[in-house]
């Protein structure tokens, strides 16, 4: 095979060398302003359309969404339920305000939020990442927290005009400082390889009080996720040896059927927030 006469071969070899340099030099950098962002914006509407189409065709849409009439009836029933809950809430809020004042507790500062649709997930599942149709133009920047109605989804890792990319808590590089809501035991949450929504607690105290059903929330330690966001529930506690407890967590977010997310338009800082 005469390589010098094979132009595509020469082009391919040169492209491989150039791309290898690019891969190394652009690894984990924030290149929001550049050809990458432009290319991403060109393909975004097409990607969004076909991703939605694929969801519908595969039946991966949110199973709770029915027809408009069904939704209306469901909402009416829920309204009654929430009116009842609101009465209890008013009482609890008043009590909480009194107690907070007593403790000189400042309370949580409220931040603006932005809702966005997920328009893509990483091809070939190299990373547990997702793309949303909101970016710098909506005020989204790196390290902003992403959640949905069920709990913590992840955080933004890259933001360009018109779209952003986020990393889910199920990514292997993800490690979150969490605590058991009931007992306030601290630990690190890490995804279990090869599963789409199971995680495990690491560095848990040997004699920690934890049982299946316990709710796991973010602890606020580590500087990215603020305290108190629900992450998952304990589904299994096993003591393979006396010194180490294995605690399996099921994420409250259904990552296979996630469609919309909410992004907190504020980068959490452990020291100042």
């Amino acid at each position: 095979m005469n390589v010098s006469k094979n132009r595509p071969m020469i082009v391919a070899i040169i492209a491989i060398i150039v791309l290898l340099v690019l891969v190394i030099s652009t690894s984990n950098t924030d290149s929001a302003k550049g050809p990458v962002s432009i290319a991403g914006n060109i393909i975004r509407p097409v990607q969004s359309f076909f991703f939605g189409l694929g969801r519908k065709a595969s039946g991966n849409e949110d199973k709770n969404v029915g027809t408009w009439k069904e939704k209306y009836e469901k909402l009416l029933a829920e309204q009654e339920k929430y009116e009842e809950m609101l009465k209890n809430y008013e009482e609890l809020k008043a009590e909480n305000d009194r107690l907070s004042e007593l403790l000189n507790y400042v309370g949580n500062i409220e931040y603006d939020i932005c809702t966005a649709d997920i328009i893509g997930t990483t091809p070939s599942e190299w990373f547990n990442e997702f793309v949303v149709n909101a970016g710098l133009d909506k005020g989204i920047t790196k390290d902003m927290v992403v959640y949905n109605k069920d709990g913590l989804v992840g955080r933004i890792t890259y933001s360009a005009k018109g779209y952003s990319r986020g990393i889910s808590i199920m990514d292997e590089s993800s490690g979150i400082a969490v605590m058991v809501e009931r007992t306030r035991e601290n630990a690190i949450l890490s995804p279990i390889e090869g599963t789409s929504n199971e995680l495990e607690l690491l560095y848990l105290r040997d004699n920690a009080d934890i049982v299946p059903g316990d709710v796991i929330i973010t602890s606020g330690i580590g500087g990215i996720y603020p305290k108190g966001i629900q992450v998952g529930k304990v589904i299994e506690v096993s003591t393979e040896n006396a010194r180490e407890k294995k605690v399996k967590i099921l994420s409250t977010v259904d990552f296979d059927h996630i469609e919309e997310v909410t992004i907190v338009l504020h980068v959490y800082n452990e020291g100042t927030d």
């Binding site: 150039v18 791309l19 290898l20 690019l22 891969v23 190394i24 652009t26 690894s27 984990n28 950098t29 290149s31 050809p35 990458v36 962002s37 290319a39 991403g40 393909i43 975004r44 990607q47 893509g120 990483t122 091809p123 990373f127 990442e129 793309v131 890792t157 779209y163 990319r165």
Partner: peptide, 8 residues
Amino acid sequence: ALFARAIG
């Protein structure tokens, strides 16, 4: 452009 952590 859309998904990778490094171009290429």
